[in-house]
């Protein structure tokens, strides 16, 4: 990391370049954990966020899955919400205008049952003022049609990105699922198909059992695990993706503290999304931003950009050389 003798009073520069977007800081909120922003306005200044990713939008409204939809697990939760959302028309008419008035980049997460729906959705959002980028959801584990079906096969994933790419000039982020054997293959396929950026990971497929009723704890039987429990999986996936492609990557998965967020940046992610932690502490993103600032001050680093991708996998055993000399081994 580049050292810099900045004076104690200087405010460290948290801004990052994420593809074509300049963010005031790398802390975004993950789709489905922040509603359409308004739900959190009593708890934080939305304009302090790096960007807001809204709840996934589909062409038509979706009612979502029957309850129970969530269950708490060790250091995490499993959800099977089923992409309940108001539909793109209501979103444009009654949710987006409020966000448009704010000085914060808005990323719209989109989801379709068919390739055609993805394309129509992207076309509808193309050219709408106040939308900074689209995040293509090909990784929701909780819906039968579409969702993860698109995200687990490199060819299908590429086709979704292709049709969206043709329908809009907006920057595209593809959100990847961890529920695959080689996440790097999906990353490569979607970037080749025209995705400008990637975000990873979506939730980890999971389930929970009630021994007294002998029933699954979720009506949908299976759901997606999120929260601190999945952070190590998310870090590993992010590294695999970074080793495969050279586009900007947004790290997601179990981020609840400034340390968690910085771990992804050190790996090489250019931004992060905070998800489940918003449920526990609605102003956690503000605390993460302030914590990053403290870290830069303590480490005497002027620009957060200088931390990105500084992971050192070569020097894992700093004493190895000395030890070899001592024992006179080759």
């Amino acid at each position: 990391m580049a050292q810099n003798s900045n004076a104690p009073g200087d405010t460290p520069d948290l801004s990052v370049q994420l593809g074509p977007l300049r963010l005031r800081n790398p802390v975004m909120v993950a789709s489905g954990t922040f509603g359409y922003g308004e739900e959190y306005e009593d708890f934080l200044d939305l304009e302090r966020l790096g960007a807001i990713v809204v709840k996934g939008i589909s062409l038509r409204p979706r009612p979502g899955n029957p309850p129970p939809r969530i269950v708490e697990t060790a250091a995490g939760m499993i959800n099977a919400i089923g992409l309940e959302n108001v539909g793109v028309d209501v979103f444009l008419k009654s949710k987006l205008p409020h966000l448009q008035r704010l000085q914060v980049p808005v990323v719209v997460n989109i989801f379709g049952n068919t390739l055609e729906e993805y394309a129509q959705l992207a076309a509808k959002l193309d050219g709408v003022p106040g939308i900074a980028a689209l995040e293509i959801n090909i990784s929701c584990p909780n819906v039968k049609e579409g969702g993860m079906v698109f995200g687990t096969d490199p060819l299908m994933a590429a086709r979704v990105v292709q049709v969206v790419r043709r329908a809009t000039a907006l920057p595209l982020i593809t959100k990847l699922t961890p529920n695959v054997t080689r996440i790097g293959d999906i990353a490569r396929a979607t970037v080749d198909a025209g995705s400008d950026m990637l975000s990873c990971i979506n939730t980890v497929a999971a389930m929970a059992v009630d021994i007294f009723s002998r029933r699954p704890k979720l009506a949908n039987v299976m759901g997606g695990l999120s929260g601190p429990a999945i952070k190590p999986i998310a870090l590993r996936c992010t590294l695999e993706v970074l080793r495969e492609v050279h586009c900007p990557v947004i790290g997601i998965g179990g981020i609840a503290t400034p340390t968690d967020a910085l771990e992804f940046l050190v790996l090489g992610a250019r931004a992060v999304q905070v998800g489940t932690a918003n449920f526990v502490n609605p102003s956690v993103t503000t605390e993460i931003i302030e914590g990053m600032e403290r870290f830069l001050r303590v480490e005497k680093i002027a620009r957060l950009e200088d931390c990105i991708g500084t992971l050192d996998t070569q020097c894992l055993f700093p004493f190895a050389e000395i030890a070899c000399e001592l024992t006179d081994l080759p």
């Binding site: 959190y40 899955n65 919400i81 449920f279």
Partner: peptide
């Protein structure tokens, strides 16, 4: 969450 964001309490 209790805030209308998670949509878990349907």
């Amino acid at each position: 969450c209790g805030l209308g964001a998670c949509l878990g309490c349907a």
